[in-house]
């Protein structure tokens, strides 16, 4: 009780200390968001913007693409991250340093790289033409987007998961093996549960980043449209602020809901394990 009255005492001081943070929150977060939400009511209004077939298709494509990228990136990063955390080999430090390089590239550069790889004049095309007499070009489709998104998502996932794998106690794996567990049992019973928080965290960041990615999509997407591109088009080309704002709110809300669901699911998984 004594502690309580003590903490109630310097209320003004606390308020004063919190004030700068509150002002920042208000100025850069709450107010613009509120303004954005208000903007959505202009023009055709929310319902029309959100239920337009074009928006729905873009939303569906964006969610599916982001989910596929997140799952693939996390799965690949789990294997690579655990390997890099556990094995020591010549050139390991250089490899780890190089893996973080793509983090610095803007989305446009990533898109450019995908075109170099799988575009009309791309490497994959040349090889497949030489082998099968037909050029394989997938840079401008969802496969190309997937490759680009995966490229910029992987480094972040690997970095997070590697840190978590380094913190895993190797004795746990040895204990499981000493009790008769073969490789896959160890992965299932020890490594994956141990990495679960990092897998969920990096998957969530990956998903949110992919949902909002514009540069790569902008460079690649000729056959496809993702939601951020639609927003960009509405905002800059059509100067349709109302539609852009309602789509933005839709994008934010969808991402938030999917992440909340993922956290809930992983939380109950961890509790059951």
């Amino acid at each position: 009780m004594a502690r309580r009255s003590e903490s109630a005492g310097p209320f003004l001081l606390r308020a004063a200390l919190l004030a700068p943070a509150l002002v920042l929150l208000l100025a850069f977060f709450l107010l613009p968001l509120a303004k954005l939400a208000m903007l959505g009511f202009e023009g055709q209004g929310y319902w029309a913007a959100i239920t337009a077939p074009r928006s729905l298709r873009a939303l569906r494509d964006t969610v599916l693409l982001s989910a596929a990228v997140s799952f693939s990136a996390v799965a690949l990063a789990a294997v690579v991250g655990h390997f890099l955390a556990r094995r020591r080999f010549p050139g390991r430090r250089l490899l780890v340093a190089m893996l973080t390089l793509p983090m610095a590239f803007p989305g446009v550069v990533v898109g450019f790289l995908v075109i170099l790889l799988a575009g009309r004049q791309g490497l994959v095309g040349s090889v497949t033409e030489a082998l099968f007499g037909e050029r394989l070009v997938f840079a401008y489709s969802f496969a190309g987007l997937f490759a680009g998104y995966l490229y910029f998502s992987l480094p972040r996932c690997i970095a997070t998961i590697m840190a978590a794998a380094e913190a895993l106690d190797p004795a746990l794996e040895e204990a499981a093996r000493s009790l008769g567990a073969r490789r896959w049992r160890v992965v299932r019973d020890v490594i994956l549960p141990g990495l679960a928080p990092a897998l969920v965290a990096s998957g969530a960041i990956c998903f949110a980043t992919a949902m909002g990615a514009l540069g790569t999509a902008f460079t690649l997407a000729t056959d496809t449209s993702v939601l951020p591109m639609l927003i960009y088009t509405e905002f800059t080309l059509a100067t349709n602020l109302g539609v852009a704002a309602s789509l933005s709110v839709l994008l934010g809300a969808t991402t938030w809901v999917v992440l909340a669901l993922a956290r809930g699911a992983s939380g109950s998984l961890a509790a059951n394990a």
């Binding site: 746990l172 204990a175 020890v190 549960p193 961890a270």
Partner: peptide, 9 residues
């Protein structure tokens, strides 16, 4: 094991 290595989950 030295620090027992009990499975935390």
């Amino acid at each position: 094991f030295q620090n027992y290595a009990l499975f935390p989950n």
